[in-house]
Design a protein around this nucleic acid. Structure first.
Length: 812
RNA sequence: GCCGAGGUGGCGGAAUGGCAGACGCGUCGGUCUCAAAAACCGAUGUCCGCAAGGACGUGCGGGUUCGACUCCCGCUCUCGGCACCA
């Protein structure tokens, strides 16, 4: 007997159809006034790089799956999109193709990317689209800059800055990776002194650190990275009075005041302001030569731990306040002027760097902390752990922890020092000497100094000609808003991370031309329930956004203090062993995939290919396999044929039970973003359905249940084909139906279950009983059973295992 | 160096302490075809065996447990982050 001819479906026909239908129905338009519970589903807005390939698509698909599921579950979903549209690539393109303006290049790219997103069936509320390079957005960037300025959080300072010689721009600390430019891993960053704008993020260091503890739905890794980046340490500042006529002290910072008696020398950073005054005449030449060389050295050399320590003595001495000892003062570049006080006391016995330095220059090493065990004296290396204080006068015998406190108490009592908390976090340098960014709305006037452009005169528009702003007199020549006399505009633009630090608020009222965002609407939608994007933003973007949120909270503009409740970092898509990218030439073009296979297959494949947080390798065979799966689902749902088989054995109850279990599994998996196992579970259900038909199963209630379950649960991942199938089954699209299947009690069909009760790993009871409505009920009933109660003997079970019949002989 | 995450078939990967390898790819066999491709059906951890079946298997070494991929201790390798922050 031959099976009837099976036709399958044509994705090229149904996919455009449903994309049209969704657009017409406006299914992803978020209502601000809905009575449904809100769900804010956000993917990191991208830099618009033009045509999309499937490497870009992965996180958008994840976001889309959640949006569709939450909508079907009855949430009012905000799923917006926008473009991080300022930045260097547009300028580079403009330089490569003279005559092409960065704006045109950017807007063309946006159009291409948008077309490809739609082609993949990813639904956004495009009415709320945000484009950061357009005046109606960057106007509010400038407005927020002024808010920061008014609150004392934006300031200008001369600063040695990181300078990328290729991009000819200043880089933030965060953009320097191992002393090299983040955009050019082979280009060393130089140092240069410039007047720069900063945001005072260090004022928020403690709150940024503390609130990390509340972000329990963030990846552990990201929280650890931010914690380390903020880098809080507790210690003390101690004054070492200078020896000689100068009535001054050197203030040092240490995290180990308990080792104060072991300080045998001091080290100042080469840039330390005290250096020129304390250096003795006979050491002057040497010190100046050293500091000059340190200044010229690039970050990469300076930061290398491989490098041998260098330094020179100043000839000056200072007095250790705790024991009156005179210690020599050295200059060395292993001490950083930007951290602590730019000066340290060196305790070679208990600090690896000081130890190395002391060995190199023959400086004394004195042990003041005895390790809890092992021989003391004769150190081969620095002992940095805790121990007992020795050679420390009145503090001898104290353990290092209480010694820390007692020494601090003593210093504070005598006015020689004080407890002090330091952070590694530096202020955020936002100035960029680039054209394609938000102009900083400040005017310099000879009479009035630095003046903000009045808010009603914003935006300060970017001039049309593509040329550095500092070379455009039409731009920088202006009048002072206060006195009306000639003045000069600031020609720096803002770091694009400023733009991306608040765009998620703009979505709440994307077209409001009276304010950056409507506080009421922002409070309605915020915080973001799910934020999805690349791990490369684990520090910069996320820390800055958190900072903005806190500042805006303090300004009374938003209620929440954290922007993102749940964060997820998806892995990257590779092909031929490399991350998919235009430059590597290994991208799978969205348009081509859709033409040859289908958007649905691409979507399902990217979810099925591996754990969402892992990097995955794209293979064409893999996507074809998923295409086969979707065709098989179509045949099962639309053209089912049961085949009479000898022996039969089709079990409709078992199929219905399988469907119910799949509902639970897939719903949980989607919620936890375990898309790979969700798809696998749907494949299992399809296999079970096929098996059922092959055993001669017919279209009864169990079958219908399985069909509905499969189509609904698969819909968020493969929306086009599922909508089409649903229409054929029910006469309408699924999103219109908007109902998510609920896990219910088919499990009651389980005739008997065995329950095993354990206390503290000890087996206490085992009994067979009639099944209840659900696993949970079975367990509850088991605990109420007198036999179990007796076995438990009043103690609480550490574990109750529900064991299906087929496994019971494994339990003793 | 410090911090974090991981080592499971030929491959990607599944497994609240309870049948290791779900699901898929690949491979092999079959159906259809003049043939090939596609599609569909079946087999597929390794070793021994014609078979029924047996033995061995989650980086390495110990431990806890009736039972360990899973928990604990030690080691090792890989990948990510930070890196002279006193």
């Amino acid at each position: 007997m031959t099976a009837t001819r099976r036709t399958g479906y044509s994705p090229q026909e149904i996919e455009p159809k449903w994309q049209r239908v969704w657009a017409e129905r406006g299914v992803m338009k978020a209502s601000d006034s809905s009575t449904k519970p809100k769900y804010y589903d956000l993917v990191m807005y991208p830099y618009p790089s033009g045509e999309l390939h499937m490497g870009h698509a992965r996180n958008y698909v994840m976001g889309d799956i959640l949006a569709r599921m939450k909508r079907m579950q009855g949430f009012e979903v905000l799923h917006p999109f926008g473009w991080d549209a300022f930045g260097l690539p547009a300028e580079n393109a403009a330089m490569r193709h003279p005559g092409v303006h960065p704006q045109k290049w950017t807007l063309d790219n946006i159009a291409e990317s948008k077309r490809d997103l739609k082609m993949l069936g990813i639904l956004y509320d495009w009415d709320r689209e945000v484009t950061s390079c357009l005046p109606d957005y960057y106007r509010w960037n400038q407005w927020l800059f002024e808010l920061f300025y008014e609150r004392g959080l934006a300031y200008r300072a001369m600063s040695p800055v990181n300078w990328c010689p290729v991009d000819k721009t200043v880089l933030a600390n965060e953009q320097v990776i191992n002393g090299r430019c983040w955009r050019h891993p082979d280009v060393e960053v130089e140092k240069k002194d410039l007047e720069q704008w900063f945001f005072r993020i260090t004022d928020y260091a403690q709150r940024l650190l503390e609130d990390l503890a509340t972000l329990e739905h963030w990846p552990h890794k990201v929280r650890v990275m931010q914690t380390n980046w903020i880098g809080r340490s507790e210690g003390a500042e101690v004054d070492f009075p200078l020896v000689g006529p100068v009535n001054e002290s050197v203030r040092i910072y240490t995290t180990r005041p308990d080792t104060l008696f072991g300080a045998t020398f001091m080290v100042l950073a080469p840039e330390h302001p005290l250096m020129p005054r304390i250096t003795t005449p006979e050491h002057r030449t040497e010190v100046e030569a050293y500091t000059e060389r340190a200044r010229k050295e690039t970050e990469i050399d300076r930061l290398s731990t491989e490098r041998e320590k260098t330094g020179v003595p100043t000839g000056a001495f200072a007095i250790n306040p705790v024991n009156g000892e005179q210690v020599p003062i050295w200059i060395a570049d292993y001490v950083l002027v930007t951290y602590g006080t730019g000066a340290i006391m060196a305790v070679p016995a208990h600090d690896e760097r000081d130890f190395e330095f002391a060995l190199r220059f023959g400086l004394p090493i004195r042990e003041v902390i005895a390790p809890p065990s092992g021989p003391q004296g004769h150190l081969k290396e620095a002992y940095t752990g805790p121990g007992t204080m020795v050679n420390s006068g009145e503090f001898n015998g104290l353990d290092s922890k209480s010694g820390f406190e007692r020494v601090c108490d003593s210093l504070e009592r005598k006015g020689q020092g004080k407890r002090s908390v330091k952070y590694r976090l530096r202020d955020w340098l936002i100035s960029r000497q680039r054209y394609w960014g938000s102009p900083i709305p400040i005017v310099y006037c000879e009479t009035d100094g630095m003046v903000m452009v009045p808010k009603d005169q914003l935006p300060v528009l970017l001039p049309k000609p593509y040329k550095p702003l500092a070379e455009q007199p039409d731009f920088y020549n202006t009048t002072c808003p206060k006195c009306g006399r000639e003045a000069r505009r600031e020609t720096d633009t803002m770091d694009t991370f400023v733009d991306s630090s608040w765009y998620f608020l703009r979505y709440a009222s994307a077209h409001d031309d009276t304010q950056a965002f409507d506080p009421e609407l922002a409070n309605h939608w915020m915080p973001v329930d799910q934020y999805t994007g690349g791990v490369e933003h684990a520090i910069l973007h996320l820390l800055y956004s958190r900072f903005f949120m806190k500042v805006l909270h303090d300004a009374g503009m938003v209620e929440a203090t954290e922007p993102f409740v749940r964060l997820f970092n998806q892995g990257m898509v590779k092909r031929f062993g490399q991350v998919m990218s235009k430059s590597a030439g290994n991208g799978v073009s969205t348009a081509e995939l859709v033409a040859k296979q289908s958007a649905d297959a691409g979507r399902v494949y990217e979810m099925f290919i591996g754990p969402p947080e892992e990097d995955v390798e794209w293979t064409d065979a893999g996507v074809n396999g998923v295409g086969r799966f979707l065709q098989r689902v179509w045949r099962l749902v639309v053209e089912p044929t049961s085949i009479a088989v000898e022996g039969g054995g089709a079990d409709a109850i078992a199929l219905a039970r399988k469907a119910a279990q799949t509902v639970k599994k897939v719903t949980d998996d989607y919620d936890a973003l375990r898309f790979n196992t969700a798809v696998a579970a749907l494949m299992e259900l399809a296999n079970a359905m096929q098996d059922y038909l092959q055993r001669g199963g017919t279209r009864d209630a169990g079958w219908d249940r399985a069909v509905q379950t499969l189509v609904k649960l698969l819909n968020p991942v493969a929306p086009h084909v599922c909508e089409e199938m649903w229409e054929r089954l029910e006469g309408e699209g699924l999103l219109a139906d908007a109902s998510w299947p609920v896990y219910d009690a088919v499990i009651a069909a389980e005739p008997e279950v065995t329950v095993v009760v354990q206390v503290g790993g000890r087996l206490r009871a085992r009994l067979t009983m009639e099944a209840g409505a659900s696993e949970q009920k079975v367990l509850e009933a088991a605990l109420a059973n007198p036999k179990v109660k007796a076995a438990l003997d009043g103690s609480t079970p550490s574990k109750v295992i529900y064991v299906p019949d087929r496994l019971i002989n494994l339990v003793p």
